[in-house]
Design a binder for these strands. Sequence first.
DNA 1: CGTGAGTTTGAAGGGAATCAAGACTAGTGG
DNA 2: CCACTAGTCTTGATTCCCTTCAAACTCACG
Lengths: 213, 213
Amino acid sequence: MLSPLKLQDAPSTTAPFGFTGPCLRHSRDEEIFGEGEAAEYVYQVISGAVRTSRILRDGRRQIDEFHFAGDYFGIEAGDLHRVTAEAMTDTSVRMVRRGTLSELAGQRGDVARAIFRLTVEGLQRSQDHVLMLGRKSACERVAGLLVDLAERTGASRELDVPMSRQDMADYLGLTIETVSRTLTQLQADGIIAIPTTRHIVLRDPAALRRLHG
Amino acid sequence: MLSPLKLQDAPSTTAPFGFTGPCLRHSRDEEIFGEGEAAEYVYQVISGAVRTSRILRDGRRQIDEFHFAGDYFGIEAGDLHRVTAEAMTDTSVRMVRRGTLSELAGQRGDVARAIFRLTVEGLQRSQDHVLMLGRKSACERVAGLLVDLAERTGASRELDVPMSRQDMADYLGLTIETVSRTLTQLQADGIIAIPTTRHIVLRDPAALRRLHG
DNA sequence: CGTGAGTTTGAAGGGAATCAAGACTAGTGG
DNA sequence: CCACTAGTCTTGATTCCCTTCAAACTCACG
């Protein structure tokens, strides 16, 4: 389900929201912005993958979203970032100054609508996440992530997994061991194959979707 | 943390978004709209309390948000509602036709900004919810709900709980038994008192906030 | 090849779920 | 007004899924 903005956006040449901003490269695990920092920019992933997360005082981490090419992140209601954003792979990210974006939205109705739509879609993704964390088993969660990854990265069966097992666990509200065991079990059931850690083949996507619920 | 819109909104006289729409009453447990129905309206709670939820095929339910006076709900990116909305108590709700609202937003920048802000705040609440469901213990979740309820309903210590234990459980991703046990434990610890089921006294809000993490 | 981070696998433990009564509470009607 | 009743809530006993703790393995990378 691509948004209008994504469609009109040829990643490396056209700017997000029809506006050209600087484009920064980040290497793997580099922080793009941190929780509590001033939210001066809004970001769009040009290539690569980004995670946004929050950490409790005792170190427990929850990833609230993965962001792929075309996705945007870093929008805040207040002045500060409430999450930390980090590159999961080598990543290219375009930055748009917040004030510039809201000005542009004020002038162009289509831009305002597009931004609003993306935000509502983000909200709905978050609600899906809530349903998963609140009411689904480990197996259903892992299956759901795989299906989601396939859809969002445009892969049909061959999945390039951009995140570590720890990232998966912190997104799914599980431990790394449970994620690993569940993947192994799915492989034993013939539903997926795991040729390498970062490469998963969906042998039976329909079964995965059924598990996903 | 009240939004600008809420502040300028004297619940029973002024309309949401500076616009007057019809105002409907719903009695307890009545459905306001259902998952899968056409999303023709956006709603604002005038008085009472509303829950929005989703149900899996096998009956598991997840409440994704409680809505109180001033809050709005029912915004969708697509044409259909993705959640079901029900009145938790006798409730008065104002309806604004979706097209009307987007027209108004197109004409008045302040309205567009206010709606956008409310949506981003909803997204942030959802992210808090994700963190809670993914990484917090039963005790931390219940404490968090109580603190949140107190803040949002403007109660300092005397909490009128508008929802059933089942609603609490389905919001917190727990079972009704665990919610009940946890509340009993908090009472035993002297942190809260439960004179009646729907009335909870926060005897040590600081301790609750500490548990909330 | 050696090294170490990341991952998988194994064994044991724990927190919340499930199953099952029992105690309230709020309506209802006599 | 008060017994009756259905629904809600609480409490108890047991189970189970996931976590925790621990160790072995794999595979990038120098």
